[in-house]
Each structure stands twice: as C-alpha cells, then as structure tokens.
C-alpha cells in the first residue's frame, strides 16, 4: 500500500567506461549499474551494484513483461537501496546466489534461462525476502505512471473531460 517509487535517483547517460559485466542485462561499475545499451544507469549507495542487478533480474522474473524495459524494474526496486534495508537485501540475494551455485551456476544472474531462475524463486516463494520483493513490486512496478501506457492504461481522465466524448463506447468488433 506504499506510494510508488518515483523516478528520482535514476539518470540516463551514455555507456560508462570501466564497466564490468555482471550479468546478461547489466554493466556494473563501482557504485553504479547501467544498461548495456546505455539507455539508463543507476547509482547505488548502500547495496552492492551486483546486488541491485540481481534484484532487477529477480523483479523481472517475478513479473515478466517483455515489452517493459529494465529501467522500470530498476525504479521499482530502487527503494531497497537504503541503510535500513541493505542488510536484509544483501542476505536475500546471497541466498539466491547460493541456491544457484547449488545447481552448478556461478550466481543467480549467471543463470541463462528464465525457467531455471524461476525454479529457484518457486522454491523460496514462501520466505519473507521473496514476499517482501514480490509485495513491493505490486505497487512499485504497476503504479508507475510511466508504465501505464505500455499496457494501454490511460490513467486520470477528469482533466480531459472524462470519456463521454472520447470513446467510452467505441468498441467496434462485437
């Protein structure tokens, strides 16, 4: 029931130099992570960048929408980069990695197939760490106004006069 995580703290920038690959989706440097295509980057202050990268992947694996860019998942979990939350999150991601290692992978992020990562998540779905992340995503992801148009949802309508003249009954395929 919390307010959505805002876009604060997220900056778009060009691909950063001295970056090292930490997973399929992310390039991580000292204290920051960035998309391989340079579309966006995010600084972390309390979490290790690799941990944030794992969280973003975990968020996508929980609520996978292939037409929604990583940027929005990153915004959704950015709020865990706090002094209070960091210890629990680091422990949770370490547990994810340990489970991945138990299946012969270097880390959760290093698992190439979504189904393998989801198997790990299914095995831990009743634990508080998983529930914390999943529960937070319900508002953290789906209550981002920038995400709504990706699903066709139009949001507020009062300021546009409602839909009385804007297609409330325009269905044409029945």
């Amino acid at each position: 029931m919390s307010e959505p995580t805002g876009p604060k703290g997220l900056t778009r920038r060009q691909l950063l130099s001295r970056a090292t690959a930490a997973g399929a989706s992310f390039v991580v440097g000292a204290g920051f992570m960035a998309a391989p295509n340079g579309a966006w980057a995010m600084q972390t202050t309390n979490l290790k960048p690799e941990t944030m990268a794992s969280l973003v992947q975990m968020a996508r694996d929980i609520y996978p929408h292939d037409h929604v860019a990583d940027e929005y998942y990153a915004i959704a979990v950015k709020g865990y980069d706090t002094a209070e939350a960091a210890e629990g999150i680091e422990a949770g991601v370490a547990a994810l990695d340990a489970m991945a290692q138990g299946k012969g992978h270097a880390s959760y992020l290093a698992m190439g197939w979504e189904r393998d990562r989801v198997d790990i998540l299914r095995a831990m779905e009743d634990n508080p760490f998983f529930q914390q992340i999943r529960g937070g995503l319900v508002t953290g992801l789906y209550n981002q106004k920038a995400v709504w148009p990706l699903f066709g949802y139009e949001g507020a309508s009062y300021e546009f006069g409602g839909y009385i003249d804007r297609g409330f009954d325009d269905i044409n395929w029945l």
Partner: peptide, 26 residues
C-alpha cells in the same frame, strides 16, 4: 485500473501465467 488489477486479479500470483493476463489489460 492497471494498478488495482495487478493487486486484485489473483492476489499473490506471479510469473508468466499472471503477467500474460496483465499484458492484455487493454
């Protein structure tokens, strides 16, 4: 709306069975 649909369509559900429903929210 999309925010409440995510919360109420199948509370607690996750993964592609759930998200493929929301993909067709429109």
């Amino acid at each position: 709306g999309l925010p409440f649909m995510a919360a109420f369509l199948d509370p607690g559900a996750w993964g592609r069975e759930f998200t493929s429903a929301l993909d067709l929210y429109e």
